[in-house]
Amino acid sequence: MKGLILKDLYNISHNAKSMLFILLFFAVIFLPSSGAQGYTFTCALLCTMMIVTTFSFDEYSNWAPYALIMPVSRENLVAGKYIVLAIFSVIGTLFGLLVGTIGTRIAGAFVSVQEPAALPLGLTAIASLALSTTFGGISIPLTFRFGPEKGRLLVLVSFFIPSIICYAIYRSLLVLGIALTDDLITMFLYCSPILALVWNFVMYRISCSILAGKEF
């Protein structure tokens, strides 16, 4: 499986410069208005969305049949994608934290910027990792099922489904008379990595069953 991950990292490294440019451009746009928190989340999200690009490379080079003649299983193929997704999310989050923190201090010298407090920033990092992998996690079964071309369009779905689920939970809480306090939201954000793990495990199993039925 290490080979599968390495292959994706090599392939995507070709896009690293353009991604770096986009992230820096977003820093200029977002940092003064959203601060480091919003920027970190944006970076994590943008980086995890690159998982669909790795599928495009695979399709272009007809990689899947070759991967399956190597000593890996179809489950390994799926697991490799989820590990790459996690790597992208970590890179995006760390980049966002670093550039966000430095950027807000630099920008603060010129304009009024919301300074990130230590705890919210740490919490933002945890939430960014969880939410970006949740959004990215659903794009993997969609891309396995529909291919990277349609998968790109369906990335939008990967935003909508978790958002709808969160909204449904929010409405349910209101119906049950549970007020959504700051403490509750903070607790939810701290729990978000566990929720993301459960979510991605379900997505992993769905991806495995999709791939099990595929012929190459």
Partner: peptide
């Protein structure tokens, strides 16, 4: 060892 009729590695490798 398997060789297909075309290369299966992405072209930037």
């Amino acid at each position: 060892g398997v060789v297909f009729d075309s290369i299966n590695f992405y072209e930037t490798l």
